[in-house]
Write a protein that binds this DNA or RNA. Structure first.
Lengths: 219, 219
DNA sequence: GCTCGCGTCGAACGGTCGTTTGAACGCGAA
DNA sequence: TTCGCGTTCAAACGACCGTTCGACGCGAGC
């Protein structure tokens, strides 16, 4: 913001104290790996190599820290989805086909989850937040449907013949496919198939998901 | 087991102490409603109207109580699924079509979740266990894939032309549709659609899910 | 040079947790 | 009636939790 040499990719916020960043990163990592309730403030500060009181000093409370990570990551993810949807619309005169809409929703979290992507841990965090998050976080998830409305609207434009009710239900099923992409489920699938399924290739997985979802949506 | 007049529908176990049953029911209810970590032993025993020490006396520990509920409910659910799959096979000379196989997997938890079904709370418990459960429970989920193998095998028989790899992946997507059927997601969908979607009619929801899943699987 | 404010530090506080203890209780069998 | 055993009870234990406190270091500004 002041010094253009600082290539801080974080939000629009000013450069933060190194301690605050260390706490943020350590907390996101530990929460993603072990769950919210299983990680104590002492665990976080130990991992970050900072003093115990840092969490409360910089974030107010453990819950507030959690919420800030959650808010930032979901914001980033939804912005990327919106950008892809916008690009798909630009490619198709404002009316992208179903498959392109679904891809805009599927692709960002899949690419983030790539093993060589440092955002992999963020995806795991968001997934955990969906089920283990505090009441405040679930409230946000429940009420902030604006980004979903964009996708629902695009789907209705792509299939104006389909009753809106059907669009919503099928969108719900599509969301389920995405939310189920936890690492534990991949492990289970890998175990079930005797090693036949490999999740390494993100593009191949994306194609599989799109094939399934597109056919399901157009059933 | 001894007296045929006892119509105890529980497992194969003998009639248990009323206290143990009360603890079991209260724990399942509270865990399903508020999550595992957010419910204390004191909450459970207070809800059940029994002494604090009852949990440790009858179940050994809080985790063991959790695990016993989990084990019993998943066992019941998978047994019902297996029964439906078996009936579908009997109806089709041992080779049921894709739709009937999927129905055997979808229908039991949906019927349990019916508002007038007292097993509704059990479904909620199982769903929570999938994401919030202890390492031991997740280990069971990961390793006990025998019931999934039945469904994978049936699907391969129904679509012998499909590479096994594809069958596993599409089964994975199908599972995602089921696991996403939490009440919070229904609320969100209801909110998003402006009240257009109503989950009251289980049979209608089952038909919607089958339409989507069948088309996706046969993509 | 002094002060002020920000960040960090060790230490502690109050509370809740799961679990354990040992005594009391209920009740059928000897 | 007494014994034995399974169950229930009130009470406490030790551990861990999130949070707060007061002191301290230190660079910037008057």
């Amino acid at each position: 913001m002041t010094d253009p040499l600082i290539q801080d990719p974080s939000e629009t916020e000013e450069a933060e104290a190194a301690t605050k960043q260390a706490v943020f990163n350590a907390a996101e990592r530990l929460f993603a790996l072990h769950g919210f309730q299983n990680v104590s403030v002492r665990d976080i500060t130990a991992e970050a190599g900072v003093n115990l009181a840092s969490v409360n000093y910089h974030f107010g409370s453990k819950d507030a820290l959690l919420f800030e990570i959650f808010r930032r990551r979901t914001s980033e993810l939804n912005r990327e989805r919106a950008r892809m949807l916008h690009e798909a619309a630009a490619r198709h005169d404002g009316k992208p086909p179903v498959r392109d809409i679904l891809e805009a929703y599927f692709a960002p979290p899949l690419r983030w989850a790539n093993p060589d992507n440092d955002r992999r841990i963020s995806v795991q965090f968001i997934i955990r937040a969906r089920s283990e998050g505090t009441a405040e976080m679930r409230e946000v998830l429940r009420n902030d449907v604006s980004h979903l409305e964009r996708f629902a609207g695009a789907l209705m434009a792509a299939r104006p013949d389909l009753p809106k009710e059907d669009v919503y239900w099928r969108l719900h099923f599509v969301l389920g496919m995405v939310h189920n992409n936890r690492f534990a489920e991949f492990d289970r699938l890998h175990h079930l198939s005797g090693g036949l399924t490999r999740e390494g290739d993100v593009d191949a997985l994306l194609k599989r998901m799109l094939d399934f979802a597109e056919a399901g949506f157009n059933a």
